[in-house]
Amino acid sequence: MMSPLEDAVNGVQTLKPVRHSSRKHQAAKELRYGLLFASPVLAGYLLFVLVPIAASIYLSFTNYSVGMVPEWIGIANYKTLFTGADPFFYPAVKATFYYVFVSVPLGIIISFFAAVLLNQKIAGRAFFRGIFYLPVIIPLAASSMVWMWLLQPDFGIVNALLKQLHLPTSQWLGDTGSVVPTLILFSFWTLGNTIVIFLAGLQGIPSQLYEAIEIDGGNRLHKLFYITIPMTSSIIFFNTVIAFINGFQAFVQPSVMTQGGPNNKSLFYVLYLFNEGFKSSRMGSASAISVLLFLVIALFTALIFFFSKSLVYYEGKGEQR
């Protein structure tokens, strides 16, 4: 940006018509450079996002499979899904909703309190933060393997310890009733990202607010409910929505640990989608499945934009809006 002074000096030095055309020339040059520098993402967006989405929608109305010419079959794919003619669709939806709607709220609560603890002024705080973040670094395929071994019903350490304490053991991943709760438990192991984002939010709360409540004789709970939670409302919301979106796409865990079993009780939606497209090679119907996923995620994304406007706390304005 030019300052008014510079502008005035330029105005004196150059004749008006010349300056006008050079500005136009300048704008065209900026546009050229702008598009040139942005060209990777412009091409990438077209190639890897826009065209594939359009293709997904198109393919969902066909009976396409690799090597074949897609044939238009209207809404037949969707009909097969919704009428239950495909025996896996409803079990997959059910398993996914069960997993997401239990693991996300619990995960948010746990990571929020972990962040509050990690935000206390104590010795070794950075060390604990590192430990709580560590599981996120481990490849999910590898940690899935490790947890399978921990929870192995006959020789796993968890059942062995439970037995020694005379507590009831479990089949964990091997039982239709306990498989999803076990995957939910496993999801708590990788909350590091959520915790760190909460921590960043907590660090933004001015300490005067807490001091004020102390002067008024408020206790720990008052601080939590009148300051900490309201002041981090936008981050709680952000984390929740992200967790929902990620939860709908939980793939590695069921793929490595259970392959959807036992009895399809952990056949999460994206695993079902993958199997349909790549194992059964029914790309048309898999596209229909993915379009439905897209709609659900789009709904949650719309929620972000809708709610974040009314929930975000604006720094400096000092009020909840």
């Binding site: 546009l31 967006y45 996002v49 065209v51 293709a55 997904s56 690799v66 796409q249 596209s287």
Partner: peptide
């Protein structure tokens, strides 16, 4: 450049596209 922020806004929507939605057409491609 002209239209920069609008274009960026459109590109940002890519954040919300799960890989699973574009996986099959990408494979076909």
């Amino acid at each position: 450049w002209k239209g920069r922020d609008q274009v960026f806004g459109v590109i940002l929507t890519g954040l919300m596209i799960p890989f699973f939605v574009v996986m099959i057409p990408q494979y076909v491609f």
